[in-house]
Design a protein around this nucleic acid. Structure first.
Lengths: 215, 215
DNA sequence: CGAATAGTTGACCGATGTCAATGAAGGTGG
DNA sequence: CCACCTTCATTGACATCGGTCAACTATTCG
């Protein structure tokens, strides 16, 4: 149980959009906003009216309990899209993990918006439901292994995987504490499954073993 | 860790759809299939090509780990819709909990399908993400309380709540064992928060307390 | 009425959380 | 460029919540 002070740095590089034409343009001519590490992209309760595509950097989507407990429901890396909501209100917080640029895609009442958004929403739904299995039924090692496998896949399946987020972020994503995350990393390291190149960069030495552990 | 044998009863009341017109009709003129308790509606890996609306009864959506651990990602009650997927394959199992009827709505390439499906997908996404918070960061009492609050709301906010599913289903939905679910029910009963009318029917005596416990 | 299934309760154990100390890394200013 | 300080990560000792195993009870269905 740890508390957070939502650092609303919220760099006003929002400046980039001075009331745009209200049409959705598939070409990348939409405004790009920059956010420094820790900056809030949107907050729970805010009016939603756009969705976002990560240009570079990484984003965490999360929710807080009254006492400060945090659950990160998703990380979004370069190229991924987030921010669409069931109604006109954001139900989650979105923060830049590192220096991040997001392309802001304004929603219009346009008919074909849904055709573009639906596959993204369904993808997100499947991901969230798969994450439920991890949180509901897997132990600490399985969770971390599943996380690493996922991160590796999303980075092209290379041996070396970059982890843009802190141990605390990983813990809050996996429903674990930082200490447990750290201990599992150490165990995986001792077993020769991974190697820590730096705090935020690992190398997968035994891919099969890792997949096996993630069930 | 408990194992399951997927009872593929799969009543062939599928019979109700003898190759229909390939257009989506919002009026309830679609075929209805009946499933007895425990029958499979679809399985993980099956070809997906329809979505389903519960006419009566209740449905569980779940996934299994290799060793039989099960995570129920959602329950669907009368009036609710389920079964849409990100691609053409089902990623989850769907089973009737009780005797259940579902209206089968065939997907077409139609343009406005997405406009109808998008809000449902987004609703499901929000629900799944909220459930992630429960599984990742709440303890047993909070989970059960949140579950009861949710069930109550979905049944019109009445004092009396019907639980169509077994304790094991509840456990597999909340990431708990049946024993823990049972113990929490007993604690809530002893505190005077709820009253057990029967095994599958509870009365909420202290609504505020229950909401408070669910955080 | 009896058997099978589902739920409850208790005793005990273990995985993970908590608290605390130590160690490593990165940023800032001298 | 280095030293310091702050933040982040690791490690250990211990506590605790929830899981496991087992016995008992209640309910349902034939």
């Amino acid at each position: 149980m740890h508390a957070y002070t939502a650092s609303r740095i919220s760099l006003s590089s929002h400046s980039a959009q001075p009331s745009l034409p209200d049409a959705f343009d598939p070409a990348p001519l939409q405004p790009v906003s920059f956010f420094p590490a820790g900056a809030e992209i949107y907050a729970q309760g805010e009016k939603a009216g756009a969705f976002y595509q990560v240009e570079f950097g990484a984003v965490r989507i999360y929710r807080l309990l009254a006492d400060g407990r945090r659950q990160i429901s998703a990380f979004h890396l370069a190229g991924e899209t987030f921010g669409f909501e069931a109604d006109t209100t954001h139900h989650f917080f979105a923060e830049a993990i590192n220096a991040t640029a997001v392309r802001v895609l304004r929603l219009t009442a346009g008919a074909d918006i849904s055709r573009q958004l639906l596959p993204l929403a369904l993808k997100g739904l499947t991901r969230a439901q798969e994450h439920l299995l991890v949180l509901g039924r897997q132990n600490a090692i399985e969770r971390v292994a599943a996380f690493l496998v996922d991160m590796a896949e999303r980075q092209g399946g290379l041996r070396q995987v970059e982890l843009p987020m802190s141990r605390m972020d990983i813990g809050d994503y996996l429903g674990l504490t930082i200490e447990t995350v750290s201990r599992v990393f150490t165990r995986l390291k001792d077993k020769g499954v991974i190697r820590l190149l730096s705090l935020r960069s690992i190398e997968i030495l035994k891919n099969d073993a890792l997949h096996c552990m993630s069930e």
